[in-house]
Amino acid sequence: MTTQTQAARPSAVTADRLKSSAAALRRRASRLKIVLGAVLAGIVVVPILLANVLPLPDPLEQDLSQRRLPPLTDGHLFGTDQLGRDLLSRVLHGGQVSLTIGVLAVLVSGVVGVIAGAAAGYYGRRVDAVVSRLLEAQMSVPLLLLLLLVVALFGPSITVITLVIAFAQWPEPARLTRAMVLVEREKPYVAAARVLGLRRAAVLMRHVVPNIINQVVVVMLLLLAQAVLLESALSFLGAGVERPHPTWGRIISDGQGYITTSWWLVTLTGLVIVLLVVGVNLLGDGLRDRVSRSRAAKGESR
């Protein structure tokens, strides 16, 4: 890039120009997104992880004399719900359910997607035809209906909900991996590895996939944000993990009836979801910008 040649002859003018250049602005923008995203996500994730250690009331403990207390009363930071349970504690424990499902779903869809996409891109022909058809078919499936149906039929356990979300999400990593492997497999190092006597599967797993995995992993963060949203939508519609586990969607759908008198039930729970999802999305987007830029820079210097 131009940075090296400019650094050799420092001057105020070039420094100014560099600072306002498009590349510098993009770098600042992605740094802003990463920092902002990490902070927002951290505000939500850290308390969720510490929910069992923090001095909070039990999320299931009812106290009918303490019903629907507004926030900041009697040590209830978020107030209490219609059964007198502490809302903050319920939101944090609901977050544990959401994050568990989200992370597991993303892992499953990521592994399936990378394997399917890599095989389709690398082997081509019939493997590619099968995978591409599946990806196409999934676009015309009434997805949410199918997910709700499966949860209704097989029961709302964490496993079923995780698998259902993973099913909804595998096309994204698969499509991305396929596209990148298609480019990667034409590069000289693949031919070189083949000449050295490596089998095709070994070339794919030991050389091609490690070269692209960074970009896929970054996209997984964006998928995690979507998974959390999908889980909350499912539980809002009644297809969430069984009671008495608190889930974000159910806290909101239960609180809907009290919205005029107890605004905090829906509002605060929703804000926590938004903070987490915005944070993870910003972090993922910023990291993706950074990874694709460093990749582009490497490509130019070669």
Partner: peptide, 10 residues
């Protein structure tokens, strides 16, 4: 990014 992070039901 913020716009696509808000749950529709909320």
């Amino acid at each position: 990014i913020a716009g696509q992070s808000m749950p529709e039901f909320w």
